[in-house]
């Protein structure tokens, strides 16, 4: 009962296309859980199964202790959802939609609603057809966040928001996190957002969970990208294990370093008379790239082995 969401061995195929292939996910009650994956990895399918809108072919799903397909309505009273691509009724105003969704939930905190509308700078009197994607998203966010629920399921909720509003969103979620009585499942493909907000992360690829754990636990996956300007040559980097994609061109050095190798690499740079240094955490792309490359290499090796055996 400690887990808000417990999914194991989930599979789902749409005709011949396999969307989920033995997927596992555990979200503990009270945490903000990041759900990362590239487009088409199965994030939205998973969420739809969690919402009881799509039935899994096999595997077990427990959501707030219940079966999301069989007890969809009862469970939905205890959760709120923001779709990735929010569609609204063109001739209803944003305020009308927020109240409608609130009523359907069976209760809404009016003060919180008004406060959120103000914070997101949403004009609730405009008709939905005139809203941009970001404003439609705000409507769904205000409706979800002002509902009195235990679980928030957010599917790429910031994809249409401007940086200012994204900051407001982060603040609001951080407040939720401090309350510790709400669980949030946040699907995203923006690593920095997940890093800023989430306690734990699950990474999905090709319908399978490839990694799951706290961000610190996932650090082994991450390499720091470093760019430096040096006075002398930084040849010491060449032999260093844990330094990858090294490029040296007249006084400039670029490389990616594993966490363990970072200290040694910076030592080399310091000895070489570093004059400028830019480093940034690995992007999700790099992370996925590594996983994809791994998978591609594996299957190439398997194919070669099969060739050999013949």
């Amino acid at each position: 009962m400690n887990d808000a969401i417990d999914v194991s061995g989930l599979t789902k195929a749409f005709g011949a296309a396999k969307a989920l292939d033995g997927f596992d996910l555990r979200v503990r009650t009270g945490e903000v859980h990041g759900f990362l994956g590239p487009n088409g990895a199965g994030k939205s399918t998973t969420i739809r199964i969690l919402l009881g809108m799509v039935r899994a072919d096999s595997g077990t799903v427990r959501l707030l202790g219940g079966d999301p397909w069989a007890a969809a309505t009862e469970l939905h009273r205890r959760l709120a959802y923001v779709p990735g691509d929010v569609a609204l009724w063109p001739n209803l105003t944003g305020g009308e939609v927020i109240d409608l969704l609130g009523r359907l939930h069976g209760g809404q905190d009016r003060k919180r609603r008004d406060e959120l509308i103000a914070r997101f700078e949403l004009d609730p009197r405009k008709r939905s057809r005139t809203y941009s994607k970001g404003n439609r998203q705000k409507v769904a966010l205000v409706a979800a966040l002002s509902a009195d629920v235990e679980l928030l399921i957010l599917d790429e909720p910031t994809s249409g928001l401007d940086p200012l509003m994204e900051a407001v969103f982060r603040d609001v979620i951080a407040e939720e996190q401090r309350r510790r009585d709400r669980t949030v499942l946040l699907s995203s493909h923006i690593l920095s957002e997940v890093e800023a907000l989430c306690d734990r992360v699950t990474i999905i690829r090709d319908g399978r969970s490839v990694e799951s754990g706290t961000l610190t636990e996932l650090r082994h996956l991450t390499r720091t990208s470093v760019q430096a300007e040096v006075a002398d040559s930084a040849d010491g980097l060449t032999g260093l294990s844990g330094v990858h994609q090294l490029v040296v061109e007249d006084g400039r050095v670029r490389f990616d370093a594993d966490p363990d190798a970072l200290g040694a690499a910076l030592g080399v740079l310091a000895d070489a008379g570093v004059r400028g240094l830019v480093s940034h955490p690995p992007t999700l792309e790099q992370l996925f790239l590594r996983h994809y490359q791994g998978a591609a290499a594996d299957s190439a090796a398997a194919a070669a082995a099969a060739q050999e055996a013949r």
Partner: peptide, 9 residues
């Protein structure tokens, strides 16, 4: 989808 995620049958 928006509606079905609420407490609606």
């Amino acid at each position: 989808e928006l509606v079905a995620a609420t407490a609606v049958g």
